[in-house]
Simulated scan of single mutants.
Amino acid sequence: MAKPDVRDEAFLREVDDEYRRSQFVGFWQRYGRMLAIGIVVFLVALAAFLFWRQDRARRAGETGERFNLALTQVEAGNFTGASAVFADLAKSGTPGYRALAQLMQAATAVQSGDIPKGLTIYRAISADTAIAKPFRDLATIKATRLEYDTLAPATVIERLKPYSVPGDPWFAVAAEMTGIAELKLNHPDRAAPLFVAIVRDQQSPPSIRNRAAQLAIALGTDPASLIVSRTSTSGLAK
């Protein structure tokens, strides 16, 4: 059997290398410019993203420092200085800090005696759908408490209906205001269950639970006996 000629193998390798080289050159001539532009665009986009992320973190840190400084001013009783910082952050801060700054701006206005200004800010926060729901809910509760005595009971009940449900973060506060509004409308049968629910809710603040218990008893319902009765009935059912 004849052995393959070494010179033929070398020639074939040269032909194959030259063919691959010509393919590469052709590919580069056709797509090289586009590929180079794509790489440059990717690197520029990556650099821009990294810069944006670093700048965002830096600005968030600066905003946090200013916010904490304003809180310190509030604790020191310097409501004027704190209000100026909160007002600025409410316009230029990051979304979360903007909402917090607006809430604090309203709170400092109320603490300094300017209740109409604080109420106006709370209403604006509550109506701003661009703000996260927890902030808007807090603003709604705060505004309702501020103007509670001037609102029609039916308005209070309707406004606080979404929050007067056990399990809602604002249940205790909303249910108490709703229950009192029901009493103003001479609906003790609707108010009593709300007060009992507050007493049963272990997440309710102790002060609100105590007031709710007193109101429930005044309406002829003992929340403690209801809880015991309910527990006993559950045990018998088993």
Score class of each variant (00 low, 15 high):
residue 107 A to L: 01
residue 169 P to S: 03
residue 21 R to G: 13
residue 145 R to F: 09
residue 209 R to T: 05
residue 2 A to C: 00
residue 45 A to E: 01
residue 227 I to E: 05
residue 100 L to I: 04
residue 122 Y to E: 00
residue 140 T to V: 02
residue 28 W to E: 06
residue 33 R to L: 04
residue 237 A to Y: 11
residue 83 S to L: 13
residue 172 A to F: 03
residue 178 T to E: 10
residue 158 E to G: 04
residue 10 A to I: 12
residue 10 A to H: 03
residue 167 G to T: 04
residue 99 A to R: 02
residue 25 V to H: 09
residue 175 A to R: 08
residue 225 S to E: 13
residue 171 F to M: 00
residue 75 E to Q: 14
residue 144 T to G: 05
residue 160 L to F: 02
residue 74 V to E: 02
residue 99 A to N: 04
residue 103 L to F: 07
residue 45 A to F: 09
residue 38 G to L: 13
residue 142 K to I: 04
residue 158 E to P: 06
residue 128 D to C: 01
residue 25 V to Q: 10
residue 162 P to G: 02
residue 214 Q to T: 10
residue 212 A to Q: 05
residue 130 A to N: 10
residue 45 A to M: 13
residue 84 A to Q: 05
residue 80 T to D: 09
residue 113 G to M: 05
residue 220 G to C: 07
residue 234 S to Q: 11
residue 80 T to K: 07
residue 183 L to F: 09
residue 202 Q to R: 08
residue 185 L to Q: 12
residue 85 V to I: 15
residue 33 R to N: 04
residue 171 F to E: 01
residue 183 L to N: 06
residue 213 A to F: 05
residue 220 G to R: 13
residue 9 E to I: 15
residue 213 A to C: 05
residue 202 Q to H: 07
residue 77 G to I: 00
residue 229 S to T: 14
residue 142 K to V: 06
residue 230 R to H: 14
residue 233 T to V: 14
residue 213 A to S: 15
residue 4 P to G: 09
residue 137 D to E: 14
residue 34 M to H: 07
residue 230 R to Q: 15
residue 25 V to G: 01
residue 146 L to G: 06
residue 92 S to N: 09
residue 195 F to G: 12
residue 4 P to E: 04
residue 118 G to D: 12
residue 121 I to L: 12
residue 231 T to G: 06
residue 208 I to E: 08
residue 228 V to G: 00
residue 46 L to M: 15
residue 130 A to Y: 09
residue 157 I to G: 12
residue 86 F to W: 08
residue 113 G to H: 07
residue 49 F to V: 14
residue 231 T to S: 15
residue 1 M to P: 10
residue 171 F to R: 11
residue 45 A to W: 14
residue 111 Q to H: 14
residue 70 A to Q: 02
residue 24 F to G: 06
residue 107 A to H: 07
